[in-house]
Simulated assay, not measured.
Amino acid sequence: MMAIPIAIVGVGKIARDQHLPTLAASNRWRLAGVVSRHADDLDVSAHPTLTALKAAVPELAAVSICTPPIGRTDVIREALELGLDVMVEKPPAATISEAERFASLARDAGRSLFLTWHSREASGVAPLSAWLNGRTINRVAIEWMEDVRVWHPGQEWIWEPGIGVFDPGINALSILTRLLGPVSMTGATLRFPANKASPIAASLAMEGGAGELVSAEFSFDQRGPQTWTMTLDTDGGQATLLDGGGRLEINGSPVDVPEGTEYGRLYDRFAELVGKGEIDADLAPFRLVTDAFLIGRREQVDAFSWSD
């Protein structure tokens, strides 16, 4: 099977940390170029626009979009008009109304589209989903605590309206909706730094379609150990995802999980979608974020500083 030639649009931290190493290790994909003005160190064709890259690399067949979420429609439309299949880093867009257009654009163009949620591919998620089959979930408690200074150093775009702590928090919501299906937001408190347009912390209350009660605590100001856990109390015992879903414990005992990486599985899934000409554009985690902003009570906290 020949590797599919793909380009990365936007060579920032997530592209360098995850996408580029994953593509380098893949036998299903071949990095054919990048769209970036800051990629002189990469041994690959680099151009300022996707159209220019496609002209230079005619065999280009797909694109993975890793730019910040604002303004994604123009990039996706350009890719589709060039006949490319499209994969999009989370969150898919700046607004729900924008993201909802992507599937129809891809369908009209006859191309595959994958709006990704990388945490759904964490090693412990599929085994947990299998264990939950036939069991009743009573309560879910989420703690997603990390330090923005570590994971997004100096990246001011993270404080654009609608992002903030929900950049990592949406990862937890993506796992939650993968496990529970439909989830409703019933209450939210959002804590905004005095000098920023998005929250640095959030407390959420949700309810699953079968009445499961869900609580979530998100923080972008976690000092010391970083924490990404989800604990599910069921009629058959307690399950806990740790390390963002990378580890799983059932009733306190570790469970074997598959080898491989989140992004490796994402790109395998994208290859399957391309092979079948299909679209995967689930927006359930994104809808929960917008619901949190709609019903959330706003609290102001101390101003944020990158140097604290």
Rank of each mutant, 00 (worst) to 15 (best):
L84E: 02
P92C: 13
E59L: 05
E249P: 00
E249Q: 05
I76V: 14
R247E: 07
A56C: 04
P91L: 15
S123E: 13
V88D: 14
F304P: 00
R191P: 00
V257S: 00
T22Q: 10
T240M: 09
D43I: 12
A24F: 11
F192A: 03
A271M: 01
P285G: 10
R139S: 10
E160V: 08
I65W: 08
L242M: 15
I8Y: 03
F286K: 11
L53F: 01
E249C: 02
M230E: 11
L50K: 09
G181M: 02
N195T: 12
T234E: 12
A79K: 02
P168D: 05
G296A: 08
A24E: 15
P5C: 08
T136M: 08
S64V: 06
I142G: 13
R178M: 06
A271T: 03
R37F: 00
E160W: 13
T116Y: 00
L50Y: 04
T95A: 13
W306F: 03
T67Q: 06
T67Y: 07
M206Y: 07
S307N: 14
L53V: 04
P127M: 04
I6W: 07
L204V: 06
E278T: 13
L84R: 03
H47Q: 15
Q226R: 08
D268Y: 00
M185N: 10
I142P: 13
G181S: 04
M2G: 07
A56N: 09
G12R: 07
I65C: 03
S305R: 04
P168N: 07
L288N: 13
V301S: 00
G162V: 01
S203A: 15
P5I: 02
A106T: 03
F304I: 00
E212F: 12
F286T: 11
R107T: 11
E59M: 08
R28S: 11
L204G: 06
A194K: 03
P58E: 10
G169E: 07
